[in-house]
Design a protein around this nucleic acid. Sequence first.
DNA 1: TGCATCCAGTGCAAGATTGCACCTAGTGTA
DNA 2: TACACTAGGTGCAATCTTGCACTGGATGCA
Lengths: 213, 213
Amino acid sequence: MTRSTLDRRTAQKAERRSAIVDAARELIDERGGPVFGVDELAERADVSRRTVFNHFPSLDDLFLTVCEDALAVVVDDFLARIARTPLREGSRSAMFDEIATAMHDADLPAAIATILRILGGSSPAKDHKSPLSDAAFSRVTDRLLAEVLRRHPAADPLEAELLVESLMSGVVVIARHWVELTGGRLDADARATWQDLLTRLLGSVRNGYLPAT
Amino acid sequence: MTRSTLDRRTAQKAERRSAIVDAARELIDERGGPVFGVDELAERADVSRRTVFNHFPSLDDLFLTVCEDALAVVVDDFLARIARTPLREGSRSAMFDEIATAMHDADLPAAIATILRILGGSSPAKDHKSPLSDAAFSRVTDRLLAEVLRRHPAADPLEAELLVESLMSGVVVIARHWVELTGGRLDADARATWQDLLTRLLGSVRNGYLPAT
DNA sequence: TGCATCCAGTGCAAGATTGCACCTAGTGTA
DNA sequence: TACACTAGGTGCAATCTTGCACTGGATGCA
């Protein structure tokens, strides 16, 4: 019965790691961008400067983790919406419809804006912007695909993967367009722009995925 | 400026230590005595069983620390009362009076009852009862003496030490008598008994310490 | 008496954090 | 150009925690 904490060592290591990630997110939020040094971060996380590099090979890796965590919050909501959606197993378009509905309802622009702020916003245009956001979004894709396959065990895995993959890559594309058009603002106008882009994306994917009715 | 935390290593070690002490006190309070194993304690403190023995050579040492901590709470109050007492530097009996007043007001029976519970109360009479309580009270003596010397820098150190030492050893004596008489109860009757014993002690010490007026 | 069981306490090696010295690239400045 | 200064990142030894195997004494029981 001593196994209530599965390996204290692992647990405490995870604690330190998330302390670092939390501290980084705090600082980023406070300053509108990743404008702080390792020493500052280490002190905020109540951790040695060396320990930061023990957990993350570089600050960019840390920022990637922060990105993923920020996205994860929205994706949790996203997947929860799908989970609450009634299951229509017989329907051919069930998978598409439930994802599309969740995408319309979820607050994706907020997540994208957060990522932009993490990566430096519209200001000093760090060159690693693309790889970082790509990596973050790819984890989202994995989670979404897993959830879809869980809900539709009878579905063709290849078909599901193609659907999710094309939807998510489409989201990345329209996200970049959206940032280009709005600068990452979150006002009503920008949100309307997002809905426009999203509708066009969903329409396009639906056309490719489902036979025209 | 990185020295805001004076040596993180030391700080975290102290954290672990007090986590163990706190867990021990919790368990003692819950069960009315030190009736638990090391594994239970370690799990409660979220610490490895081995770490307990890294900080405390034996469980008795741990219990002593818990004793001291419990007493320290009351002694803090005790010293605070003295500190709030107006200083009468010229008076010969100032030192005695301020201690005597604080002793009358402080809730010493509660502290003694706590220690008794820690040591097993009136039940299975562990043999190490005396050394433990002696050690705990001796730390109280040190703190009290230091405070007295701080307040009366002009006083004769030997005189002050004799006063404090005889008062505290007297407290230990009447505490044992009090336990004998009342069994460590905390009702009005037992408290009256305590006040009786204390008055007799203070009178006796005053007679020896101050010339009869 | 012999045996099993429990529990405080120890020895030890592996993992993790820490502090410190050090390296290196980029940047400002005379 | 030369110099200094900052800040990310690494090597390394010391320290601490942890898990595990183990000892030894106390207790219970046949």
